[in-house]
């Protein structure tokens, strides 16, 4: 089973996770820029984070045989802090980078005017840079948040087939499907979706345009949830080909729209057994 996790925050994960992911079949992932749990207080803090998504984290991933791409954006939560909004002005120099395959995570958190502005501005940046967009749907008041998201999307220059709506569930999958966007589902131990509910949605909605991710981060989450969905699909009678479509071909097709997805894993070269991480910290 080959797996492409289209949404996972490896900055928050350990080398044990990378090893377990590789053993489970993960060969590629996309790490969206997001909130780090501790609020940032200046644009420079974002820039170091973005640089890490373009430098150190792909290097770590390559040592474990996993191709790493990222999405770059000002996340909706911090779009509300005027100390952070100058990040929007610096995004163009990041959105030209080779391993940036989408603008994201963008979307709504508390549905404020500042979030309206950041979402619309960043959808325009995606259109201007030939990139798709990863749009987070809010955790609170999700159904209303999705409707407002779709209103902004309709007014944007970005066509729906270049947008994935993420963190969907049973209450939002219908409207999301009707929008023509790609459908993202995050599988969590406690919240969001679980593998069995995911299988039920796949039975009803089919496997087209569906992305399944672990969205693993610094919270209680599990980077192997993608694999668990694959196993639950097989147990429910889905074919190997359908599992491959959901867990590999769909994310490749979605992020491939950037023209920047490179899935030939670079030889980690000098780094047998992850030496520079294990003992490089002089």
């Amino acid at each position: 089973m080959r797996i492409f996790d289209p949404h996972i925050h490896m900055t928050s994960r350990t080398t044990d996770d990378y090893e377990a992911m590789y053993a489970a079949g993960v060969r590629a992932l996309v790490e969206p820029a997001f909130w780090l749990g501790q609020p940032r207080t200046s644009p420079a803090s974002f820039f170091d984070y973005f640089d890490s998504l373009l430098g150190w984290e792909p290097f770590r991933a390559a040592q474990h045989g996993i191709a790493h791409h990222c999405t770059i954006a000002l996340n909706p939560k911090e779009a509300n802090d005027p100390r952070c909004t100058p990040v929007l002005d610096a995004l163009p120099r990041y959105l030209v980078k080779d391993s940036v395959v989408a603008v994201g995570e963008i979307g709504y958190d508390s549905m404020t005017p500042a979030e309206d502005h950041a979402l619309a501005a960043q959808l325009q940046l995606a259109a201007d840079h030939g990139l798709p967009a990863l749009v987070h749907t809010p955790h609170r008041d999700k159904a209303a948040g999705l409707k407002r998201t779709l209103d902004v999307l309709r007014e944007s220059d970005l066509p729906p087939d270049r947008v994935v709506l993420d963190h969907l569930n049973e209450t939002t999958v219908g409207d999301a499907t009707d929008s023509g966007c790609w459908l993202g589902f995050s599988i969590y131990p406690d919240t969001k979706m679980d593998p069995e509910r995911m299988v039920r949605i796949l039975r009803v909605h089919g496997t087209e345009r569906v992305l399944v991710n672990s969205a693993a981060d610094w919270g209680r989450s599990d980077p192997l949830k993608t694999r668990h969905v694959g196993e639950a699909m097989l147990a429910a009678g889905f074919s190997d080909d359908e599992v491959d479509q959901v867990l590999w071909r769909n994310p490749v097709a979605f992020y491939g729209q950037s023209g920047r997805l490179t899935l030939d894993i670079a030889d980690p070269g000098a780094l047998h057994e992850g030496n520079s991480i294990l003992r490089g910290g002089e």
Binding site: A266, D267, P268, G269, A270, L271, H272
Partner: peptide
């Protein structure tokens, strides 16, 4: 075996 690899 200490491998420069393609990147170096």
């Amino acid at each position: 075996s200490s491998a420069t690899g393609p990147s170096v």
